[in-house]
Every structure is written in structure tokens, then in C-alpha cells.
Computed example of a mutant assay.
Amino acid sequence: MASKESAVLGEMYKTWVATMAERPDMTMEETRRMFEHWGDVTAEPGDVDYIEVVANGVPCLWAKPKDGNESRALLCAHGGGYLVGSRYSHRKMFAHIAKAVGCPALIVDYRRSPEHLHPIPVNDCTDAYEWLLKQGIKPEHIAFTGDSAGGALAITTVLCARDRGLPLPVASMPISPWTDMEITGSTVTTNEAKDHFVKRAVIEHMSAGFLGEGGNRKDPLATPLYADLSSLPPFYVQVGGDETLLDDSRRFVEKVRQAGGEVKFDIYPEMQHVFHFLAGTAPEADKAIADQAAWVKPKLGL
């Protein structure tokens, strides 16, 4: 049974959906301002320094835990359907992950749609990864993570790095990844009533904004279900049981396994989209982050 503390996220999502329904004329600036409050449900992790940096021309934010091993790094991509969210809305969540793992996290503020269409976000994340490598951090000491659209970027940045001929990171940990721009997962329908945020209409709106008119929904760097997933680093996918994007995770995991890859997959019952935002306030989020750390630390040599 879900903890009472976990209900806070669902209530926030309900408020946002109601606000957007009541105000269909909301500007993008107003919408983005609302989503900057995502981190309001996250406890301040403490003992973390935040440092703004420009990585290969891409604005980023370091979240550096006290006594973290600075020869290792996490590359983090925020969610928000490629339209909203930022390094600031997600800083506390990624800082909790960085503290649990014991190394700094570089949170990428990639350019967002609709002003900047696909593939700009994945290129920005790959540019930031290339910058990390140029800082002398070895690829076997770098892992990726991200949530929702950022969960997709935790996959597609690996693919883009491979396309560029870059050495690949040691692992990737997509959280509630959005892997299907065609919106064909069965849970988009079966979990519609339980997911308090990611409704079909929301997915349609965000995918159209991301791809632009006539965009290719089967592009592997937008829908990684169509990608060649062979010879990639290990993945650890986490998702909530009440999410409409549950099938996006399931099918990606199946595709990795079919390609002969290593993947760990955990479904957290009754949890909402990116319940990790409840870090420090709900036991389910703290457990999921502890699970991530236990999985990735040996891979990073920590």
C-alpha cells in the first residue's frame, strides 16, 4: 500500500492539470513558471554545493555532495516533455541521487521545445557529455540518469554518443522514460484514471511541440524503441505502477533484452510519474534512489 506521504505528488499533478484545463490560453512562460515548482515536494538534501557551469556551450548545474568522489560523475537530464522543467526544478531530486551514489551530478539545461525542436535536446546533452570527457573524467566513471523526457535522453544520449564515435558511459538509469512518440502503449489507456498527470492529451501536446509539424515519430533519437539497442551499456529502468508510461518502460526493457543487453527493471506499485521527486519525504522515493545507488556504485567503482 502506498504511503500517505506519497499522495502529495499526485495532488500537485491534479492541481496542474486542472489549472491547464481552466486556462487553455496560458503562455509558455506561465506554464514553465508553474512547473518550476516541481521541486517543492522534494526535501532539501543538504550538504550539497550547487555550481553553475557552461559545458560545451550548454548551461548546466553541478550538484556536488560534500566528500563526493569528483573523479566520477552523473550526467542528468530533467523531464518536462522537452517543453518545461529545468536544472533548477530538478536540482534537489538529482542532488539526492548524487548524495546516494557519492559523486557529483551535472544537470543539463538543454534547450527546450517548441523554440528548439528535436534533435536539439539530445545534441545538447551529448555536447555536455563530451565536455565531461574533456574534463578528464573517464567514460567508465560516468553514468547517465534522467526522468520522463529526461529518461528518454538518458537513453538517446547514449545512442547519439555512439553515433558520434564517443566512448560510451558505464551505465544509464532512466526514470519513467518516455520512449514512444507514437503513443501506442496500452497503459496510456489502462492507467489513464490512475495517472494524475501524464494523460494522452498531455503526451500528444508535448510530442507535437517536440517534433514540430511533420516530425518523424519513428526517429530512434526520439523514439528509442526503434533504435539499434545492441552493444550498449547496462540500463536500470525504474517506473511507477500507476503511470501511463509504464508500457514505455516495459517495451524498452524488452527491446534491450532482445538485443542481448543487460537491464534491471523495477516497477514501484501505486506510484505516480517520477515519484523520485518525493526524495526525503516519502519512503518509496528514498528506496528507489537507494536501489539506484546500490546498482550503479559498483559499476562506477565506488
Rank of each mutant, 00 (worst) to 15 (best):
T244F: 02
A21Y: 08
A279V: 04
R217S: 10
S89G: 09
A259F: 14
E30G: 04
L246Q: 05
Q135L: 10
C125A: 08
W178D: 03
L168Y: 03
C60G: 01
A290M: 10
S230H: 08
G80D: 03
K264L: 13
A95K: 07
A98Q: 08
K99E: 05
R217P: 04
L117W: 05
E70F: 06
S89K: 01
K4F: 12
M26V: 03
V296N: 05
A290V: 12
H141K: 15
A105N: 01
S3H: 11
G214K: 07
R112C: 10
K297C: 09
R87C: 07
M12D: 04
E262Q: 10
C160D: 15
H116N: 15
V53Q: 14
K99F: 09
G85Y: 03
L300C: 08
K92H: 11
D180V: 02
G209M: 01
A171N: 05
T145K: 01
T223W: 05
V41Q: 03
A285D: 07
D242F: 13
K4Q: 14
T223Y: 04
M1L: 15
I120Q: 14
I97R: 00
D242T: 13
V53E: 10
V296C: 06
E243K: 07
D266K: 14
D219V: 10
C60R: 00
V253M: 12
R217D: 09
P169W: 02
E29P: 11
G150C: 00
T179N: 09
L117K: 12
S148G: 06
L302I: 12
G214D: 09
I107S: 00
D247Y: 11
F265R: 06
D195T: 11
L245T: 05
A282I: 07
S231R: 12
R111E: 02
P224L: 02
M1A: 13
L246M: 08
L300S: 06
G10F: 04
Y110G: 01
T244V: 11
P234H: 04
H37A: 14
A288K: 01
G68F: 05
D47N: 15
F94K: 01
G57I: 10
G165F: 05
A149P: 03
H276I: 02
E140N: 14
I142Y: 00
L9K: 08
D247Q: 14
A154Q: 00
D219N: 13
A222L: 04
A227L: 05
P65S: 10
